[in-house]
Design a protein around this nucleic acid. Sequence first.
DNA 1: ACCTATTCGGGTCGGAGTGACGATAATGCG
DNA 2: CGCATTATCGTCACTCCGACCCGAATAGGT
Lengths: 223, 223
Amino acid sequence: MRGNLFAVAVDLVVLTVRQGVFSTLLVRRGIPPFEGELALPGGFVLPHEDLLDAATRELSEETGLSLRGHHLEQLASYAAPDRDPRGRVLSVGHLALVPDLPEPQAGSDAAGSAWHPIAELPALAFDHTRILADGVERARAKLEYTTLAATFCPQTFTVSQLREVYEAVWGTTLDPRNFQRKVTSTPGFLLPTARTTSSGRGRPAQLFRRGNATSLHPPMLRD
Amino acid sequence: MRGNLFAVAVDLVVLTVRQGVFSTLLVRRGIPPFEGELALPGGFVLPHEDLLDAATRELSEETGLSLRGHHLEQLASYAAPDRDPRGRVLSVGHLALVPDLPEPQAGSDAAGSAWHPIAELPALAFDHTRILADGVERARAKLEYTTLAATFCPQTFTVSQLREVYEAVWGTTLDPRNFQRKVTSTPGFLLPTARTTSSGRGRPAQLFRRGNATSLHPPMLRD
DNA sequence: ACCTATTCGGGTCGGAGTGACGATAATGCG
DNA sequence: CGCATTATCGTCACTCCGACCCGAATAGGT
């Protein structure tokens, strides 16, 4: 085997919708390079570790958040020769879609971590701005033809909450009646439960659970 | 930087349609491990090389084929700890879609290379069967909502040739009249030229060139 | 108790897109 | 010349979507 060796890292684009705002999780770097700057959570893969395991572990170490039961997929790999001043580092970007989680805790290599709205993003370390943009675009596209929007919702949720997820992620507004017809007529998207949304004004809404369906045919149209 | 170093390789899923048969390019390995077995073309990334450059170079070295002007995109990374008996190797899979190219030539590290129909695939070295399956599925999905089917065609082609691409890749049959209506009514998919398909039986067909459109809204439906 | 704002959710209507399929045009072949 | 073959246009019914109306069910104010 030739001797051209790389360090391999994983970086995570963790997306959520909190209080109607499409947001991502960023850490403030506690060590060089880019010390003190914002970056995606992530770190180096261990010698006998798989990529998804490394992503889960690094997120837990840096923010205290667990991805158990949540959506996690590989995004793409980034390996420009000069993307890391320390040397040749290939980073495998990952995308996680989670419901509104608790506030993150500071951990190893990170001076702190917090949720940031996608709409008002600061500059990030390394090429993380590009990785984040790719993750956001992947998430926006996947809402069109999959049922992944429900992964942004709590375990039971209303049609309106699901609609607000689409509106937050896409930055659009959707007609509530047409949206309701679309999602309730898709078999396996929503499982009905007892209606108990006494909170808020207006007529109480029925609560649903995620169904088994994963794809959406025909797709939901973005505007 | 921690000392957990990987060798990084690129592997290529090169897909084409030749004589109506959906096919891929495989090499017979000339060196261990898996010497003598079939594998995807690919090899290690050089110290200052980008991933797409490495993919283009490796394909040229192993088969003599050039990807200039053809579609090439990153597919996914594969990094299971035991995927290569030589040690820790991360491979970045790539997907290339090309028209009917000349027969490949044998090159470095390869005892020979040839086109193989997707429908009757032998077992491949490493985890290349999985990488190939991911590439094939990506290609099939992309024909639905992009105009990439035209990248399988020569520079000028008829609507029937384009339809045969869809039929070969999807393994289905499509109604010629509805297909014609769909592709000719999509702005920017096909650019008309002079009609000259005197070859073959039946009424001569108009020749088209690829247009500037990249996405297909609404998508082409697979069956 | 009543009205009103608000939200949920069922329904209608027209247009775009598609599948199924008929009809016509333009060639090669016997 | 007849006929098979292929390309291309056209028709019709159906589905799905966007725009919109209206009733149903609650909270809050008076």
